[in-house]
């Protein structure tokens, strides 16, 4: 009997980390780089991050690689958002609270050696895939990144250009003009692919139905919903 993936986990830290930098990627999105401080994680997991001494924390997928000396999360500033706004205002050396890692959106070592991965993201849902590809450069993967504008193709150069397809819905100039779900309909997937979906719930629901209709078994579908 096997349940999705494995329960990989390391000790939970509940510590203060220091900010290295806030790297803007667009008008609203940025990468928060902080001390790694010995935090071990499985690529694909997330951490809870919040301003120091605040009770408010939010879940963010880890963006940096497992061998990086630092820890990065990709954050989109939310209108009226307490945490995303406060973190954007951090300066180098400022303390932030970090808990984790958490989550089961991880890959299996045996499958990585043999399997072919299809990563499907919307917006900042690209974050765990950035971490996975950076952590396991030898893995066989393709990325479909659904965004509204070209500026949301955050650091796409991190991916092999031949394996990355941006689906841009509101501007011309992407690899595909339209939503990522339409791309999936137009380009049926290999049902043996291990499909990882990350992003908003609507995209995941729609993609889930499309993939099932194309013969992908439920055991090959993994989802991390951003709320």
């Amino acid at each position: 009997m096997e349940i999705i993936g494995t329960s990989k986990r390391t000790s939970v830290k509940g510590l203060t980390h220091r900010v290295h930098e806030v790297r803007p990627l667009s008008l609203t999105a940025y990468v928060l780089r902080i001390d790694r401080d010995g935090l071990e994680f499985e690529p694909g997991q997330y951490v809870n991050v919040g301003p120091h001494d605040s009770i408010a924390m939010r879940e963010y997928s880890i963006y940096s690689g497992k061998d990086d000396d630092f820890l990065e999360v990709l954050i989109k500033e939310v209108e009226g958002g307490l945490v995303s706004r406060a973190l954007k205002g951090c300066r180098p050396g400022d303390p932030v609270s970090v808990e984790g890692p958490f989550g089961f959106f991880v890959t299996d070592g045996d499958e990585r050696a043999e399997g072919s991965y299809l990563f499907i993201a919307s917006g900042t849902g690209i974050s765990p895939f950035h971490c996975l590809v950076r952590s396991y450069p030898g893995m066989d993967y393709s990325v479909l990144h659904g965004v509204r504008t070209l500026s949301e193709r955050y650091e796409r150069e991190s991916f092999d250009a031949a394996r990355y397809v941006s689906c841009v819905s509101r501007e011309e100039g992407g690899d595909y003009s339209g939503r990522v779900t339409q791309y999936l309909r137009d380009h049926p997937v290999d049902p043996t692919s291990l499909c990882y979906l990350c992003g908003n719930c609507d995209m995941i629901y729609e993609a889930f139905d499309i993939l099932r209709s194309q013969g992908v078994p439920g055991s090959h579908l993994f989802a991390e919903v951003y709320f």
Partner: peptide, 17 residues
């Protein structure tokens, strides 16, 4: 899909098993 939204981390196939 409801299980995904609930973040339960299993599908009915796995539950059935």
């Amino acid at each position: 899909k409801v299980l995904i939204r609930m973040n339960r981390n299993y599908r009915m196939e796995q539950y059935r098993t």
